[in-house]
């Protein structure tokens, strides 16, 4: 493995550790007895005792943190306080709907947004540009759940093209799966498309003003070739960056979208656990999403060195 990959991987460790400390302290630093917070107002002393024991709250805080981290590194994220199942099982049970919708959303977004941004930059100042920019500013101004309900009203209630809510696994009935993921995916994609289209346009406009684009024109290349051979690849790095940072928005969006469309994925699990104060599950989910976020951005960082030969870590 090239040395820069090793370095990038090592650089991710402190970030994840910070998240872990934060997640760990979140409960410990809240005023009052953590066990009481988790158990709620109606808890019996026995229940409190059991929670304390499960979380190891009777031990010194450093020891608690150490045991917790070691367990996690072994793949043991604890046991749900509500369902008594291992947290890891809960997560693996619920992750597929989220993964499917996430992947479809990303694919949709890139396929739609990049051409949009390119077109807008190419025809800067034209009606196409204005249309793209309008759509883009709408995309991240209209909240996901508003978009979601708007799409439901329009396409499910009025036009009756798609089912209103719910989810079917693809293995069970692919037709039903396909029909049910369209609206959630487009809902979720609306922010991402806005973000990527806007960045593609800005980055491309930037590149189109560079000296080497002038050189390419001075060589007598067609505008099309100037755009595709010379400008696009140079404009790619900021676009990749925004795909990475936008991933956090996507995760937030998943939580809301799954609630709107009643999809039994990780987003719903998160919301349910938070209201049930199922603390081990919350911890695991925050760690997991942060881990995925860090991983995605790591992959994107690595992709830079393929896009631009000047970038070596």
């Amino acid at each position: 493995m090239p040395i820069f990959l090793v370095r990038r991987f090592l650089a991710a460790i402190p970030v994840l550790l910070t998240v872990a400390v934060f997640v760990f302290l979140l409960l410990r630093l809240t005023p009052g007895d953590p066990a009481a917070i988790i158990a709620g107002d109606m808890a019996t002393p026995e229940q409190l005792e059991r929670i304390r024991a499960t979380l190891g709250l009777d031990q010194p805080i450093i020891v608690q943190f150490g045991t917790w981290i070691v367990d996690i590194l072994r793949g043991d994220f604890g046991t749900s306080l509500i369902s008594r199942q291992p947290v890891l099982n809960l997560v693996t049970d619920r992750m597929w709907p989220t993964i499917w919708i996430g992947l479809i959303t990303i694919a949709l977004s890139v396929i739609i947004a990049v051409p949009m941004g390119v077109l807008a930059a190419w025809k800067q100042g034209s009606w196409i540009d204005h249309l793209v920019m309008t759509f883009s500013v709408l995309g991240f101004s209209v909240p996901v759940f508003v978009t979601g309900y708007l799409l439901i009203t329009l396409f499910a209630l009025d036009l009756q093209l798609f089912p209103v809510q719910g989810y079917t696994p693809p293995s069970q009935d692919f037709g039903s799966f396909a029909a049910r993921v369209v609206l959630p995916s487009f809902t979720l994609a609306s922010i991402y498309i806005a973000l990527i289209a806007r960045m593609t346009r800005a980055s491309l406009l930037n590149v189109l003003g560079e000296d080497y684009v002038r050189t390419a024109r001075a060589k007598g290349l067609t505008e099309r070739r100037v755009l595709f051979r010379h400008a696009l690849r140079n404009a790619a790095v900021p676009v990749m960056t925004v795909i990475g940072t936008g991933f956090a928005l996507l995760i937030s969006g998943v939580v809301v979208t799954e609630s709107v469309f009643n999809i039994p994925g990780l987003g719903r699990l998160t919301v349910d656990s938070i209201f049930a104060r199922d603390y081990p599950v919350i911890q695991a989910l925050i760690l997991l999403t942060a881990g995925i976020y860090v991983l995605v951005n790591l992959l994107i960082d690595i992709s830079y060195s393929f896009l631009d030969p000047r970038i070596r870590y």
């Binding site: 402190p14 970030v15 994840l16 998240v19 940072t245 956090a248 928005l249 937030s252 939580v255 942060a290």
Partner: peptide, 8 residues
């Protein structure tokens, strides 16, 4: 970086 990694 840690804070950024947790969705808002």
């Amino acid at each position: 970086d840690g804070l950024m990694a947790i969705p808002s």
